[in-house]
Design a binder for these strands. Structure first.
Length: 866
RNA sequence: GCGGGCGUGGCGUAAUGGUAGCCGCAACGGACUUAAAAUCCGUUUUCCGUAAGGAAGUGCCGGUUCGAGUCCGGCCGCCCGCACCA
């Protein structure tokens, strides 16, 4: 018998070595076996793993090990999202090369992840900064271009002045760069775009098929795509003297039912008409400068005072002869949506209302609840925004009067379509994906600019276009532009002098197809067809909800684009998605507002003090672990002191996985104690003489067996549905039951046998969570095979169900007593037994029984009068 | 503003419409020990009661139901996402 305390420092490396040497988790396609692909969002190699990684990868690992034990051929790979700006920032700050910095970090983090004991097929490891990865990305981009999915256009871009790069709309948060936090400016630049909008409708529709995604994420994507059905039509314009102008004003609206309530038109400050007039109108030029200085940003801060500038031209109302609507340039109209021009109906739109109030424009109510009567509507203190329902009708609108909103929309659309001056149109909020970045540490865009041939793709034989390594970071902007030779090439078409594209790809491209690359990480093509056919889609994807829109939407688009260009992939790459909660921790501050690391905070007599200076600390609240607030716990130090199993166990216990979990020293300590307790219990069980018992079990043995089989059934169920916290509670229960049985002195052969079975089950049940301890325990229990080669046991059905049940007895819905009865007893028998109970007789108090409700084997409710 | 989620002991949480609080943490009492740590046993929603037992109880108000933490409606609070999208 092994005795003493369990020592993870010896046991964990031993088993990690065993799994590596036996290639326990390396897999290949095997059509005779069902496959299961479990993937956690791959990490950015920032330097060290953090607790969020521990939680994420612990969850994926539990699932991988569980499914493997259940007989699945499990693909569980790991890689590195290795391009990106932190590497360049490090280069600028510390004078290291981004490549060296990145690969050093990968090496360090690989070591840390391996110390977690993850069941990963390391032979499939990939890094997106490796030319053997990004060359395929370049090839696909060229094919996307041939398929019409790539566009180069001059556009207003979000320019991050700190990072000196362009940001996608999705990367601008509250008008600030998502990484630098700097206020974003608008600039005009020629950019590469991927035409994600070609798939707007498909990406929207297919959300309905993603039943195993959280509703929340599907909703967020739905809103992001932002479909709306409306009408595009044009106004005839005239000048101040009533002369018709040659140009028409095209607007987009979803409320064409309110056309008779129109009192002005507004166009974006960046609208072509606004730009042209500003050349001769100083006031307008000034207004445009004002609006662009405000950017997309301050508007949100200032909560948008509606501002406009009258252009001095007018739009003729299409149905009200002689009525003309003044046209304004306005700050609240966005160039990027619809036509960048609207008609304003103040009575039924909040923004139009605010604008009309500011500029003293007329307000015509044209929609009203039916029962108020058409003529009685007066303009109140706010717009009337209701539009749904049969009782809401159009008023003051000539031929629309009395129609409901839908009917009126139909009628207006029909009239415009008949006249050829308008058409129904579906609009999306989603824009094309700008993928150009003016950075060094990214995948080079494989294009060449030739003065004669214009844009020429790099011939595939010349791929990959690799990054030059001899670059400097001494000036702002893109080092590829400053490089003396790299960009100078001969044009592949005409042979003349040409230059390379110096933009690199948005790193979200790298992560839009890595899951497919894992199927065949060493293939000469991006994705091997047979491998993808076998492994795709990912059966369970696990990661943070912060990627609910960007990464997940891009991946869904990229998969479709790959399909369209005949690369193997499936339209929906992630069959099931799980978004896990964050790891949070108490924050500590000194009196001067300095954040203090938790390791420097000590608790004394109910108050916190600084470990070194002894000064009292202020508790700042429980927040997501972040470097800035210093409320971080280093996983490496936790693993060093408690072992990986204890860290994994704590990360999975208590909180449901989708919710935030608070790291506490006490909680970690508790997990550590339980680790030791399991070791003791198993060794006690192992010390009993081996007995294979076949005869009749006594009461204590039966109870333990029931507990074991019931726990097994519950854990199987919980792990299948990723309810790790519940699985862990069931493990505690079985450990408690085992402890009770082991306390019996001189157990008979029957109980000994039951104990050994329970110990086996317990070990196999916690093995996905604490794999190293499980192997040690399994060995101690005398098994020849290892846990990873042992299939998940099946509970015996007869032992899960009781032949006796405890039935609660209620009188008028209040619990009065309970009674043990044989399972499946008839209603009459139950009634007979229940009526004998003293407590029930007392509660009935001689009153007449009106109803006797029996829910079989569960509950009885007696309804009495009086 | 719009959309979504959540609200249960001192704390983290659990509960196919069917005995609210499994399991853990903390706390308290006890055993072992010279002592401490570790370990083991017990108590722990609140109130009344020595007890037996009783009453109340899942943010608040109402509804559906024999029965509601769970379903429906309305409030209050907290969290998250989106936000001038015509």
């Amino acid at each position: 018998m092994t005795s003493g305390r369990y020592n993870p420092r010896a046991a964990e490396p031993r088993w990690q070595k065993y799994w590596a040497e036996n290639r326990s988790f390396e897999v290949k396609e095997d059509v005779s076996q069902p496959k299961y692909y479990v993937l956690e969002m791959f990490p950015y190699p920032s330097g060290r793993i953090h607790m969020g990684h521990v939680r994420n990868y612990a969850m994926g690992d539990v699932l991988a090990r569980f499914k493997r034990a259940c007989g699945f051929n499990v693909l569980h790979p790991m890689g590195w999202d290795a391009f990106g700006m932190p590497a360049e920032n490090a280069a600028m700050e510390k004078g290291v090369h981004p490549k060296g910095w990145t690969y050093d970090n990968i090496a360090a983090m690989r070591g840390q992840l391996k110390s977690m004991g993850l069941a990963i097929d390391w032979s499939r490891e990939i890094a997106t900064c490796d030319p053997s990865y990004y060359r395929h990305e370049q090839a696909m981009f060229i094919d996307f271009m041939k398929a019409g999915l790539v566009e180069r256009k001059v556009s207003l871009v979000n320019w991050d002045p700190v990072d000196q790069t362009v940001l996608a709309n999705e990367q601008v948060i509250d008008g600030r760069g998502w990484r630098s936090g700097a206020m974003v400016e608008k600039r005009e630049l020629a950019q590469w775009f991927l035409k994600i909008t070609d798939f707007s409708e498909e990406l929207l529709q297919a959300l309905d098929t993603l039943e195993k995604w959280p509703d929340k994420v599907r909703l967020m994507q739905r809103n992001w795509i932002g479909r709306s059905e409306g009408l595009r039509f044009s106004f005839v314009l005239e000048d101040g003297q009533g002369n018709e102008l040659p140009e028409r004003l095209v607007v987009y609206t979803t409320r064409h039912d309110t056309i008779f309530g129109a009192s002005f038109c507004a166009i974006s400050a960046d609208h072509a008409l606004s730009k042209r007039i500003s050349k001769t109108d100083q006031g307008l030029a000034e207004f445009r400068r004002e609006v662009s200085a405000l950017g997309t940003s301050e508007e949100t801060i200032e909560r948008a005072e509606k501002k406009g500038y009258a252009l001095g031209i007018y739009a003729r109302h299409p149905f009200k002869p002689g009525v003309r609507l003044p046209v304004y340039a306005a700050n609240f109209v966005l160039m990027g949506y619809g036509e960048g021009a609207i008609f304003g109906c103040p009575a039924h739109d909040q923004r139009d209302w605010d604008f009309a109030k500011t500029y003293d424009l007329p307000i015509f109510p044209v929609v009203a609840p039916r029962d108020t009567g058409a003529s009685s509507v007066v303009v109140g203190s706010e717009p009337y925004l209701e539009k749904d329902g049969a009782d809401i009708v159009i008023i003051n609108s000539d031929f629309l009067n009395g129609m409901n909103v839908a009917e009126a929309k139909d009628e207006i659309a029909r009239r415009f379509e008949d006249a050829g001056t308008g058409e129904r149109k579906v609009n999306y909020r989603l824009r094309d994906w700008g993928v150009s970045r003016q950075r060094y540490w990214g995948c080079p865009v494989p294009m060449i600019h030739c003065p004669a041939c214009k844009i020429v793709p790099v011939p595939k034989a010349d791929l990959p276009v690799t990054l030059p390594e001899d670059v400097t970071f001494d000036k702002p902007g893109n080092p590829l532009v400053h490089h003396p030779t790299w960009k100078h090439v001969k044009c592949p078409q005409c042979g003349g002098a040409a230059t390379r594209e110096t933009d690199t790809f948005d790193t979200f491209i790298d992560s839009s197809w890595y899951y497919a690359r894992f199927c065949s990480p060493h293939a000469d093509v991006p994705v091997d067809a047979a491998a993808a056919k076998y492994w795709m889609p990912v059966d369970q994807y696990i990661g943070g909800v912060e990627h609910a829109i960007l990464h997940l939407l891009y991946s869904r688009f990229f998969a479709r684009a790959m399909g369209k260009t005949h690369y193997p992939n499936v339209d929906e790459p992630f069959a099931s998605l799980f978004t896990q909660g964050m790891v949070v921790h108490e924050t500590f501050k000194t009196g001067d507002g300095e954040w203090v690391f938790p390791v420097d905070a000590v608790l004394k007599d109910g108050a916190w003090f600084h470990a070194k200076s002894g000064e009292p600390l202020i508790i700042g609240g429980i927040e997501k672990m972040s470097k800035s607030k210093r409320n971080v716990i280093d996983p490496e130090s936790i693993i060093a002191s408690y072992g990986a199993d204890t860290a994994r166990w704590f990360m999975l216990s208590d909180s449901p996985p989708e919710r935030d979990i608070e790291w506490t020293e006490a909680g970690a300590e508790g997990s550590w104690k339980f680790t030791q307790r399991l070791w003791r219990l198993v060794n006690e069980a192992a010390a009993l003489p081996r007995a294979a018992f076949k005869g009749d079990y006594g009461q204590a043995a039966i109870e333990l067996r029931r507990a074991a089989h019931r726990a097994l059934a519950a854990v199987t169920d919980d792990l299948s549905s990723l309810r790790f916290n519940r699985a862990i509670a069931r493990n505690y229960e079985l450990a408690n039951a085992l402890g009770v049985a082991l306390a019996v002195t001189g157990p008979g052969a029957d109980l000994t046998s039951a104990i050994q079975e329970a110990a086996d089950f317990l070990v196999l049940m916690f093995a996905p969570m604490m794999p190293h301890l499980a192997e040690e325990c399994w060995e101690a229990l005398g098994h020849k095979k290892t846990v990873v080669d042992t299939p998940w046991p099946k509970p015996i059905a007869a032992l899960i169900v009781d032949d006796e049940v405890t039935i609660a007895v209620q009188v008028n819905g209040k619990r009065r007593d309970e009674i043990k009865l044989p399972k499946g007893l008839s209603k009459d028998k139950v009634e007979q037994e229940v009526m004998q109970l003293e407590a029930i007789k007392r509660a009935l108090d001689g009153k007449p029984v009106l109803k006797f409700i029996v829910v079989p084997d569960r509950i009885v409710n007696i309804v009495i009068g009086g």
